[in-house]
Design a protein around this nucleic acid. Structure first.
Lengths: 348, 348
DNA sequence: TTTGGTTGTTCAAACGTTTGAACAAAAGTA
DNA sequence: TACTTTTGTTCAAACGTTTGAACAACCAAA
């Protein structure tokens, strides 16, 4: 483990000053081509690698971007990170990741860790638990911040989301088209924006089709299999159970399928199902799950682009204006909702 | 975007010197409790956050660990990263991630990027393409390095792997027990250690059961669905096609299922299948895929622990000795291999 | 020959922190 | 009282870069 060569080693070797070396390396116009060449050669010979921290200290940059997600291993987030990483590494940044485990306290701790690490910008998706956004708001004054998917309403922070309202409408439209009429919704927590919007979209689409909104058809759950199964069991015990479920997450939908099967119901004939997010497994389970694709990779990439732009603008001294990007989601119809016989009688 | 408070701001406010502040903050014994308290209070009041880069420059540390994987969104790697992140953030490190996209050139570029970012240690899993390990070997002289899963043979670098040989044996044992006898293997590239070991385990298990090894039953493919499907098609066209396939990856196995279905074969009755890695989708596809679980999260965590220890030892001046950790894999039997009728006639 | 502009380099300070040495004051010991 | 030890702080240098200002050498123009 030999110690690294520095700019002064190069300078000494060449009999010039460190500042000349620095300028040569960064292509300063006043340095002669001759010295430039000599410096590059010497740098190569000494296996010189610039010291990021020294540079960062001097220039006030770290070259680091933080990405905070609830959990890295959920395919939605993993894919979003992939998309973001590609854009960011292309732009010359390194990516630090952190996970909140959907826990508000840990989320805060991790954000502080990112700040301490001197990140130049942060891309985040909120923990499901988080109801107090003030920390994010304060943060956004200090560091360029882009929220994606799990966001909250605030004109001052940039966000990238899918049009969740439209996605929900598409889901309900599709179910209606397939002849379902008693459509329940397994939602996420309404205070998290995308889930709130999906609930709104659900209600609005019901109204559009002249279907009544029934309070007992709406559940708010954490987006995982177990809560999906539990909620579905309760739905099926209602005096008038639903004939279709629009779930705000594929995990919920998958839980619903399990519960339905357990009750001896056939999907999609007895119960139609649409999920949200188009997780990898949704295409591959049986029955495959109809889902609303939210283009996770594009979302991550888009958030990264937005952040990079924002950082550039912020540097120019002028305030950047928070931007909202809204991607248009796409319904992918699969077995869980495609039934042959379409009963079109609306039971009001 | 107000500029951050520094140690000198605190010093000025309190009428003491920066060095006293620094010492107070780090709990130096010679600083009075009185000043310590005052410093902490002032730090809080000024919203002081230590500047990592200045500290890093002075102390020669960055607090950064790099993780390089072929692709973040493969559930195996995502889960491994999750495991590693938890250990590392616990130990006070930040985690930088990078992906090689299984491309040797990009892999190298990303590694250089990590080095430039001044990481104190690297955890990596090799790109499938990589046949020249010298870069890793050189790297391991400069920076603590732990390889996991996709590794190569070298006594000087620490590795964490699953016992791939044993895993392959378990897979074949299981197929034989289920009554299959013409067992093919869709392997990865043999030069990548785990895949090589799986091939060896496959051969050894065949021998153990008195089954012949047939060259035409062994394919080397990139671990994805398409190559799995292609290889399977060719296997099924053989004059004497296999009645079971042990695939070195669940993606390959899944491709095999698709191909088998396309040919009108029933899994597991006509063709038994065992995969490797126990990906998330394997439990949920239909038929669900029997797979060898390699404890991805534990693997990531284990690699992180090893790295942390190695860095500590390296600091003490004495050379660390490369360690090899081998986790024991577990076969998880599912529909793709559990057939009711066990034909036990061995066709030699 | 003076004046002015290039060109290629050096100088010196700065970024924010840490750390061993130095120092003064207070306290303890003989 | 004189000496040593302890306590609490300051001093100064260092980590590796960058960068505007300063400077010397040269060339060209008037």
């Amino acid at each position: 483990m030999k110690k690294k060569a520095t700019i002064v080693d190069i300078a000494n070797k060449l009999g010039i000053t460190p500042s000349a070396v620095s300028k040569a390396l960064s292509g300063h116009p006043r340095i002669s081509d001759e010295t430039k060449l000599a410096v590059i050669a010497a740098a190569k010979a000494l296996e010189y690698t610039p010291n990021h921290m020294a540079m960062g200290l001097r220039k006030g940059t770290s070259g680091l971007i933080g990405i905070l997600v609830p959990a890295i291993h959920y395919s939605f987030f993993a894919t979003a990170i992939k998309g973001a990483e590609e854009v960011l590494s292309q732009a010359g940044y390194n990516v630090i990741i952190a996970q909140s485990k959907d826990n508000a306290a840990l989320e805060r701790k991790q954000l502080e860790g990112l700040v301490r690490a001197q990140v130049e910008g942060i891309i985040a998706s909120m923990a499901i638990e988080t109801k107090d956004f003030s920390f994010y708001q304060e943060l956004s004054f200090d560091i360029p911040l882009v929220l994606f998917d799990r966001t909250f309403e605030d004109d001052n922070v940039s966000t990238v989301i899918v049009d969740d309202f439209a996605g929900a409408v598409k889901a309900v439209d599709h179910l209606v088209e397939m002849g379902y009429s008693r459509i329940a919704h397994l939602g996420g927590y309404a205070h998290i924006l995308p889930f709130g919007k999906r609930i709104e979209g659900y209600k609005s689409a019901l109204a559009k089709h002249g279907l009544p909104f029934r309070k007992e058809y709406l559940f708010q759950c954490a987006p995982n299999k177990d809560e999906g199964a539990q909620a579905t069991e309760r739905l099926l015990q209602l005096p008038e159970p639903p004939d279709a479920i629009f779930a705000a997450s594929d995990y919920l939908a998958f839980g619903a399928i399990k519960a339905a099967k357990k009750q001896g119901l056939h999907v999609p004939d007895d119960l139609g199902l649409v999920g949200f997010s188009n997780e990898e497994f949704s295409a591959q389970v049986s029955p495959s799950i109809t889902s609303v694709d939210q283009f996770s990779e594009a979302m991550g990439a888009s958030a990264a682009e937005l952040l990079v732009r924002q950082m550039r603008e912020g540097k120019g001294g002028k305030e950047f204006i928070a931007q909202k990007r809204i991607l248009s989601p796409k319904l992918i119809a699969r077995e869980s909702s495609l039934r042959k016989v379409k009963t079109t009688l609306h039971t009001p």
